[in-house]
Design a protein around this nucleic acid. Structure first.
Lengths: 191, 191
DNA sequence: ATCATTATGTTAGCGACTAACATGTTAGCT
DNA sequence: AGCTAACATGTTAGTCGCTAACATAATGAT
């Protein structure tokens, strides 16, 4: 009997979720990821360490949380199916970026800087990239062919390279431009 | 004064190194990676858990140990510099494979099957791939351009996709063939 | 025989993470 | 209002990967 579920409960959950997340990110940037303990995060958010793990499966997840992936799948499906796959992915990536880049550019840069400069998180980033790849392949239909898989993997590798270059140069060339350059490099790599 | 270093010492070290590694791989395949504890591995190898960590920095490393990377760098350097980068990497990868594929194909398949089927190890695999990428870039000279980085990343992504497909299909299409197909797919992705 | 080096073991501890159980707080029903 | 079931949170104790500090035994050089 889980009927009406008054949403103030969910609001409260969302509130502590955000409080934990905010405390974590602040502590991470203040004193580094590795030296920050889950207990500290929990204490800063006013909860116990068990509550932390009820909201985030691992310590890494709180630093990597993003909502970009599901958006990407829908954008890709909306792209003309007649285009070559690489172009479709490129278009979806750039379109998705536009929706956040204007408002959240600073946060995006800060978060990715933290990730790239923390070995453990960098590892997880590649792992998440593989999850994104699975998601894209499913959005393209069942039983993807081997060449399709290779193409998707290459496109995501290009995009990741762009992101890494972006944070390494402190956001100097803007990310959309870098992604475009990356895809152009991809098409020329074939020659 | 560490002069002669009688090599029987090194032989003994190599022996225990191999004993630990063998015990670990056996236990991993018998009862799974996650459920196998470092203490069990150490006990099976007749050492203490501290000795284990003196030989392998982490539990993951014992499952991922390979000597392919340095070989790859020299092979790449030996390849004609006039070729397009993707072709050079492809040639180096295939040439490196030839040297082990005949004798160690079974072990290679088993090890990669373990890795691909274990989430934690899969993560580390991508991380190691980034290390390989760094190594290739250094072998190509200092200060690689952005397009070069993209190309290398895409080539390694293609190769990884080939390896994953190889173990998923239980070694059915042979790995060198899959790698060739992957690179052909790469060149066509550009169109 | 002595002494420095090296490999190994022992112990204690930290931190991420889990399981078991307890407590309080809220929602729905009578 | 009062009872009960559901749920969020806390407490406690434990496992496991991993590290540091110190102890011990075997080996090699003098």
């Amino acid at each position: 009997m889980t009927q009406p579920e008054p949403d103030w409960r969910q609001r409260k959950k969302a509130a502590t979720h955000d409080r934990i997340r905010a405390s974590a990110l602040r502590l991470f940037t203040e004193q580094g990821y590795d030296t920050t303990t889950v207990e500290q995060i929990a204490a800063a958010a006013g909860v116990s360490h068990m509550t932390f793990f009820r909201y985030f499966p691992t310590k890494e997840d709180v630093a990597l949380s993003d909502t970009y992936d599901p958006l990407l799948a829908t954008l890709l499906a909306r792209t003309p199916a007649a285009w070559p796959l690489a172009r479709r992915i490129r278009a979806a990536l750039l379109e998705g970026l536009e929706e956040v880049y204007g408002t959240d550019r600073a946060a995006l840069l800060a978060q990715n800087k933290l990730i790239v400069s923390t070995p453990v998180l960098r590892e997880r980033l590649w792992a998440d990239q593989m999850a994104t790849q699975q998601l894209i392949l499913q959005a393209l239909g069942p039983e993807p062919s081997f060449p399709t898989r290779v193409t998707v993997a290459a496109c995501l590798a290009a995009a990741s390279t762009a992101v890494v270059a972006w944070v390494e140069n402190d956001g100097q060339p803007e990310l959309p431009d870098l992604i475009s350059q990356a895809f152009e490099a991809l098409t020329r790599a074939a020659s």
